[in-house]
Design a binder for these strands. Structure first.
Lengths: 192, 192
DNA sequence: GTCTATAGATGGATAGAC
DNA sequence: GTCTATCCATCTATAGAC
């Protein structure tokens, strides 16, 4: 029994909670379940996370940062052409749904299972969606196409479908389908 | 206290439960909440629905039948051309997301919030999705297009996006976006 | 009196929080 | 570990319609 608190305790608890929240849904997972799996005491968990609501919010906030890093890295390799950056963004999202145990987008799942979107976690989830959509709109706006609003709306709809369809039965090909469709829309829109 | 059993008791309970389940999610609604809202006794609810799981399953089953009737009615007015029937199907789905208090597709929401898809309610939800997708595939197969699999996959992705995007902030135009995109894909695919 | 509805007490399990 | 609250589900008690 170490008296000194392990510095990675908070991260380990958050890792454990994130896995359980994502796999079974936020509401279906109890605090005791997280405590058992993380092998920590109750007092330790409540010292790091004062309530379940804050633990959920930090789970989504960390997921948002993780996705943000992946998208930033993909953007670094995409060059400066806005259409290439747009494709790279969609590719990064398509890659994130390719996991064999993919169970849907954590933000969209949270918004689907919790009706109140005005709490801390809900604002993170809606903020993530709005940021993703704004990123697409910004890329399209820089592409000098005839109808940027229409193109951005269509791509966003496909992105929404990508995250949802991949979690449903028979959704293994959703990433390829979304990517080919987005590429075709971009190609048609940028054709001289 | 009426001795005569009201013949619409079961439907009234199911109506009440359906509203609550859809608005707040299945897991967030308690049986007592339904009992209070439906103004019925506890024993009466449990006589009609032996468990919450069965009540949820009947909620989804009735929703499936309701949607099925709407789609069948739309199909009756679409004539016999498979592309017209396909468009009518997508139009009917687009109409169902136009409600101002739309909170997502009940089947997709259920699958998002409950991880186990092998129970009675889960099979109804997945069955609805598979049926909808098969209907699209059947219509496209009758259209004599060059690549029916690709077209059906793309339309299904858009349909998934339609149901998801309409429930998210800024999703008011999702129905129009999905419809115009599907119409364009069908037009391009059937062009001689 | 008989039947059925409602209302409330209750059981056991589990929730979040201290 | 403990506390309170709530979950689903069952059972009992009572009030009213026939």
């Amino acid at each position: 029994m170490a008296r000194r608190p392990a510095p990675d305790t908070r991260e380990r608890i958050l890792d454990t909670a994130a896995l359980l929240f994502y796999d079974h849904g936020v509401q279906a997972v109890g605090m005791q379940q997280i405590i058992d799996r993380a092998k920590c005491g109750k007092s330790l968990l409540y010292r790091e996370f004062p309530s379940k609501a804050e633990l959920v919010a930090e789970y989504l906030e960390r997921a948002r940062q993780d996705f943000g890093r992946q998208y930033a890295e993909a953007d670094d390799h995409a060059g400066s052409d806005p259409s290439a950056r747009l494709i790279a963004f969609v590719e990064a999202m398509a890659e994130s749904v390719q996991s064999p145990d993919y169970r849907g987008c954590p933000f969209r799942n949270y918004l689907a299972e919790v009706a109140d979107h005005d709490d801390s976690a809900g604002r993170i989830a809606t903020g993530y969606l709005l940021d993703s959509r704004a990123r697409i709109e910004d890329f399209v706006a820089d592409m000098n196409v005839a109808a940027p609003d229409v193109l951005a709306e269509r791509i966003w709809l496909i992105v929404e479908g990508l995250h949802t369809a991949a979690a449903h039965p028979g959704g293994a090909r959703a990433a390829d389908v979304a990517l080919s469709l987005v590429r075709e829309l971009v190609r048609d829109a940028t054709r001289v």
